[in-house]
Simulated scan of single mutants.
Amino acid sequence: MENSKSNFSRRRFIGTSATFVAGATISGPSLFAAPSMLKFPEKPNSIINGVQIGVITYSFRSMPDQSAEATLKCILDCGINAIELMGDPAEIYAGKPENPVDRRAYFTLLRSKRKGEDLSDEQQKEMAEMQEKIAAYTKVVAQWRSTVSMDKFEELRKMYNDAGVTIYAFKPRAFGKDNTDAEIDWGMRAAKTLGASHVTLEHPGDDVHTQKLGDMAKKHGIFVAYHGHEQQTPTFWDTALKQSKHNALNLDLGHYVAAGNTDSLEIIKSKHNRIMSMHTKDRQTPEHGKGNVPWGTGDTPISQALQLMRDNNYKFPATIELEYNIPEGSNAIEEVKKCLKYCEKSLS
């Protein structure tokens, strides 16, 4: 999962059409006003029989506007009251320098190269130029993060909280081995300011780095929850968990199944006290093709997992992550709503 599928600046957002793909036309100052002027008469509630259902804002990556304001509108339209927030909406809101590279175009070329496809000379040249720009931009962002005030993050938190949405996790691209200590420090401070209990990142596969992150998280009084894809196994997180009480799991139930593991409910039972949040999606087993499919059509025991959380009073949130292909005529908001309905039915 990429942190920046669409990197629109707030200036571009304000200058674009106010018509959402969700089907509601929003006009006037209600969306674009200062946060203190935004009004939300009805607050969402996605706690179902004691289980907090959330959503990762990555689920809305296909929506045309990626600003903090537009993202909040998507969340509210889905009826969800708690989220894992990707980095871009918050950072763009706080004034992050605009990325000069079209990340969609770059990752299209990168995927083609990784698949072994032959790139034309022109495509190779274009990719090399993009990589140079990305390297330069990365340094600019690192410098910005080292000096930016937390004021806008406080303001964003208030805007979301006033609307009835809490931020339980924050996922910027700030915790990798290629990030500076100042960036890691910034990411944890920003997460705390946003009200998050933990930050999330892909497991780096480096014991030295997980030790470092755990130590830094302890200093900030926050947790680091490591995400995994098909490399997840029952022992995948064990070293990091032993290193620090501030290292934790961001279990991905769908990827866990697609990896061929058959103990999905058992790992929840055995690790529940170290799980900070759980990505929830429906994937198939290797025998069935590992597909990422609409909920209820794959092999992931979503209902059983949610019921396990309910029956045992597990307090970590189940995070909806929309990764299956959106059907023609629908959009991310409508599909996330379907996922939430599936949760409601499972927990009723």
Rank of each mutant, 00 (worst) to 15 (best):
M1K: 02
M1R: 03
S4Q: 05
R11G: 14
I14Q: 11
I14N: 12
S17H: 09
F20I: 01
A22H: 10
A33Q: 12
P35Y: 10
S36D: 14
K39G: 06
F40K: 11
N45M: 05
I47T: 15
G50H: 12
V51H: 12
I56R: 00
S59A: 04
S59K: 01
F60K: 02
S62M: 02
P64D: 13
Q66F: 01
A68Y: 08
A70D: 05
T71A: 04
C74G: 01
I75W: 02
I75C: 01
C78V: 15
L85M: 14
L85Y: 02
D88I: 13
E91Q: 02
A94F: 07
G95S: 08
K96V: 05
R104E: 09
A105Y: 03
F107D: 10
K113P: 07
K113M: 15
S120V: 10
E122M: 10
K125L: 14
A128Y: 09
A128S: 15
E129V: 09
M130N: 07
Q131T: 15
E132F: 04
I134T: 02
A142N: 07
S146R: 00
S146W: 00
V148S: 08
V148K: 06
S149M: 13
K158I: 12
M159C: 09
V165E: 07
V165A: 12
V165S: 09
F170V: 03
P172Q: 07
R173Y: 08
N179P: 07
T180G: 05
W186M: 00
W186G: 00
R189I: 00
A191P: 06
L194Q: 03
P204K: 08
G205M: 06
D206G: 14
V208R: 10
T210E: 05
Q211C: 13
Q211R: 13
L213H: 09
D215N: 10
D215P: 04
K218D: 08
F223K: 14
V224N: 01
Q232N: 08
W237E: 01
W237G: 01
D238M: 02
S244F: 06
N250A: 14
N250F: 12
L251V: 00
D252C: 11
Y256M: 08
Y256R: 06
Y256T: 04
V257N: 02
V257K: 01
S264I: 02
S270H: 04
K271A: 06
K271C: 06
K271V: 01
M278D: 00
R283G: 05
K290H: 13
G296T: 07
G298E: 10
D299C: 10
P301M: 09
I302T: 04
A305G: 09
M309A: 15
M309I: 14
Y314T: 08
K315R: 14
P317Y: 02
A318L: 03
T319N: 05
L322Q: 08
L322R: 07
E328W: 03
A332N: 07
Y342C: 11
Y342K: 06
E344V: 04
